[in-house]
C-alpha cells in the first residue's frame, strides 16, 4: 500500500513534468492552443512545434532518463558499490571514444552505416568499457580500487579522444563536438519507435532478472546457494547496461550524473533495496529527473538553451547532496 502511494505520487509527478515540458519553451503557446492542437490536424507552426519538436524531445527525456537510471542501478548491484555508474566507471568515456573513432573515420562509409553505426558502435564501446572493468574487478577485490581504475580508464579514453579531436578535420570535429555536448532533441518520430522498442526489451529482461538481482546483493556465494546462475546473470547485466547506456549515449550524447545519482534518490525515496520497486522507481524517477532538467535547460521565459549535461550536474548534484545530508541527519 505504501509503495502504491509512492508510485502514484511518482506517476503524477511524471505526468505533470511531461505536460510542463510540452507546454513550456522558448516560444509561448497558450494552453488553449496546446489543447486544440491535439484535436485539430491543422498544419500550423504551433502544431509543428508541439508535435515535431516538443513531444519527441519530452519522450526522449522519458526514455533516456529511465534507461540511464536503470543502467546505473544495474551497475551498482553488479559491483555492489554505491558509487558505480556508467560515467564514474569510464563506460561512457570508452563509448564516446568508440564513437569518436567511428565519426572521424566514417567519411568513406555509406549513409546506412553513418545512420545506424553510431548506436551500434556506442553500445559496443560501452560493452568494451564494462568488460575491461569486469576483468579488473576479477583481480582486484577492493571496491575503492575498482572505482579508481574505472576513473583511470575514463581518463585514458578521454585523452585518446582529445588526440583524435586534435587531428580531426573541421567537419568531423564539429559533428563529434556537437554529439558530445549531448542533447535530447536529435531524435525524430522515426528514431523514437526504435529507441523505445530497445528500451522496452531491456526493461522486460530486467524484470525477468529481479530475483537474481536481489540474490546478488547477498554476495556471489549466497546467490549461488540460492540457485542463481551467476555467470549468466552477470553477462546479462553487462549486455543490458551496454545496450541501455550505449543506445542512449548514441542518440543523445553522453549524459552524466543520472546513472550515478538517480538509484540513490530512488532508494532513499522508496526506502527499499528490492529490485522490483527499485526498477519501477528508477524508470519513473529517471524519466522525471530528465524531464525536469529539460524544462530547466530550455529556460522558460528566456531566449536561450543550455546543454542538458550542464543542467543535470548543476541542479542535480546539489539536490542529491541535500538528500544525502538529510538522510545522514535523520
Amino acid at each position: 500500500m505504501i509503495f502504491f502511494k509512492k508510485y502514484s505520487l511518482l506517476f503524477l509527478l511524471l505526468l505533470l513534468l511531461f505536460v510542463l515540458d510540452i507546454a513550456l519553451g522558448s516560444v509561448f503557446i497558450p494552453i488553449k492552443k496546446i489543447i486544440s492542437c491535439f484535436w485539430d490536424s491543422e498544419n500550423t507552426t504551433d502544431h509543428i512545434i508541439l508535435f515535431d519538436f516538443r513531444l519527441p524531445k519530452a519522450l526522449t527525456a522519458v526514455g533516456a532518463g529511465a534507461a540511464l537510471a536503470v543502467a546505473g542501478m544495474l551497475m551498482q548491484t553488479f559491483f555492489r558499490n554505491p558509487l558505480a555508474g556508467p560515467y564514474v566507471l569510464g563506460v561512457n568515456a570508452v563509448s564516446s571514444l568508440f564513437v569518436a573513432v567511428f565519426m572521424m573515420s566514417s567519411g568513406a562509409l555509406g549513409v546506412f552505416f553513418r545512420a545506424w553505426g553510431v548506436p551500434l558502435v556506442s553500445a559496443l564501446g560501452a560493452l568494451a568499457g564494462l568488460l575491461l572493468i569486469m576483468l579488473v574487478a576479477k583481480k582486484i577485490y577492493k571496491q575503492a580500487y575498482i572505482l579508481l581504475i574505472g576513473m583511470m580508464i575514463g581518463f585514458i579514453a578521454g585523452a585518446w579522444q582529445s588526440v583524435l579531436e586534435y587531428f580531426a578535420n573541421a567537419q568531423h570535429l564539429k559533428n563529434f563536438v556537437l554529439w558530445n555536448l549531448a542533447s535530447l532533441s536529435y531524435l525524430t518520430q522515426g528514431h523514437l519507435v526504435f529507441f523505445f522498442l530497445i528500451l522496452c526489451l531491456c526493461f522486460i529482461a530486467c524484470f525477468l532478472l529481479i530475483k537474481s538481482l536481489n540474490a546478488l546483493l547477498l554476495g556471489d556465494e549466497q546467490a549461488r546457494l540460492l540457485g542463481v546462475n551467476i555467470g549468466f546473470v552477470k553477462n546479462a547485466i553487462l549486455v543490458l547496461v551496454a545496450v541501455l547506456s550505449g543506445v542512449t549515449t548514441a542518440y543523445c550524447g553522453p549524459i552524466g550524473f543520472v546513472g550515478l545519482a538517480l538509484p540513490h534518490v530512488v532508494r532513499i525515496f522508496l526506502k527499499t533495496t528490492h529490485h522490483l520497486h527499485q526498477l519501477i522507481g528508477n524508470i519513473i524517477g529517471g524519466s522525471c529527473f530528465l524531464l525536469l532538467c529539460d524544462i530547466l535547460s530550455n529556460l522558460p521565459f528566456f531566449e536561450a538553451v543550455l546543454p542538458i549535461n550542464v543542467i543535470t550536474s548543476l541542479f542535480g548534484a546539489p539536490f542529491v547532496l541535500w538528500l544525502l545530508l538529510k538522510k545522514n541527519h535523520s
Partner: peptide, 13 residues
C-alpha cells in the same frame, strides 16, 4: 545571436 529552433520556426517558416 542565438535562437532556438522554435523561435526560428515561428519567424521563418
Amino acid at each position: 545571436l542565438s535562437y532556438t529552433i522554435e523561435q526560428v520556426l515561428t519567424r521563418a517558416r
